Amino acid sequence: MYLSMLKLNPRSRQVQAELRDPYQMHRTICKAFGVDKEAWKEARVLFRVDESNEGRMLRALVQSAIKPDWSRITAPDDYLLTEIQCKDVAPVFKAGQRLAFRLRANPTVKREGKREGIYGEMERLEWLNRKGEANGFFVQQARVISDGKQKGLTTRGCETVFSAAVFEGVLVVTDPDAFRAAFESGIGSAKGFGFGLLSVALVK
């Protein structure tokens, strides 16, 4: 697996446009893996934009199964503030391991065949607990540090609204194989819109 960090320029018009329509940022990022959509699928790209200092600092984290070639992306000179950093990551997961985590997700539930957003802190934490049970981890502690709605455009150009929540906390690995699969493929839906990337670090 590879993890890249892109420091985005919040004053860039393209960055601003992609924040309004995150799927366009997904398309920009995926160009680092070629122009073929099959190559995009093989790369299993996940990304998340983290903001700090009231949006004055933007960092896009990109996780992929294939090493990206960032020279392929087409973006104006003011798109990035610094050179892109990329490193090879090979985490080892063990049963009973405690990991600090951060996850930006799109909590949803299916009702009568339709996917609906989940709102409310308790309901979102319950959703996270269910995801843990299904993906080899137990949520020891968690909080929703940011929530709300995010608009975007589907591939057909239709406007859609996502339930956006950022979770932070500590989890315990219960099934290393299931957890690795979730770590590599992401948690929840709408991954092409910047959701699903699970970042973890050992709890000392």
Rank of each mutant, 00 (worst) to 15 (best):
G192E: 06
L46V: 05
L153V: 00
R13D: 06
N129E: 03
V203H: 05
A190Y: 00
E51V: 06
F195G: 08
K114M: 12
E112V: 00
G34L: 13
G188R: 13
K87V: 12
R111A: 02
L6T: 02
M25A: 11
W40V: 00
K31N: 01
F193D: 04
T160M: 08
L125F: 07
V89F: 10
R59S: 02
R180M: 14
Q24D: 15
N106K: 05
E116P: 00
M25I: 08
E168C: 11
L125T: 04
V15E: 03
I29P: 04
K67I: 08
I29M: 03
F195S: 05
L8I: 08
A17F: 15
D175C: 10
M122N: 12
G55P: 02
T155I: 14
T154R: 05
E42M: 05
P68L: 14
F47V: 00
Q150K: 12
Y119F: 11
G169S: 03
C86Y: 00
G152F: 00
P107V: 04
L128H: 14
K87M: 14
L128Y: 06
H26S: 11
R13N: 06
S4K: 08
I66C: 02
V49I: 15
E51D: 12
V170P: 10
G55R: 09
S163I: 04
K114P: 07
L3H: 07
L153D: 00
Y79F: 14
F101K: 09
A165V: 15
E112I: 05
V49E: 07
I73S: 09
E168I: 15
K37D: 01
Q141C: 11
S163Q: 06
A60R: 01
V92C: 04
S189D: 13
A190G: 00
N9Y: 06
A142L: 05
R111N: 03
E168H: 08
E38T: 12
Q24Y: 05
R27Q: 13
F179V: 07
G113W: 05
K114N: 11
V170Q: 07
L46A: 03
M1N: 03
P22G: 09
K94R: 07
F33R: 07
F138D: 13
T82L: 10
Q150D: 09
P22R: 15
R27D: 06
S189P: 10
L153F: 07
R72H: 08
L198P: 09
T155F: 09
L153Y: 12
E121K: 15
E112W: 07
E51K: 12
T74M: 06
V109L: 01
A60V: 10
Q16L: 15
L125G: 08
N135K: 15
E133Y: 11
K37L: 05
T82H: 09
F33W: 05
L81Y: 06
D36V: 11
R115V: 01
R27E: 11
R130K: 14
L3S: 10
E18N: 09
V203S: 07
A60Q: 03
I73C: 13
T154M: 08
K87Y: 15
R124S: 06
Q24V: 01
S4Q: 05
A165Q: 13
P176K: 02
I73H: 14
K149Q: 14
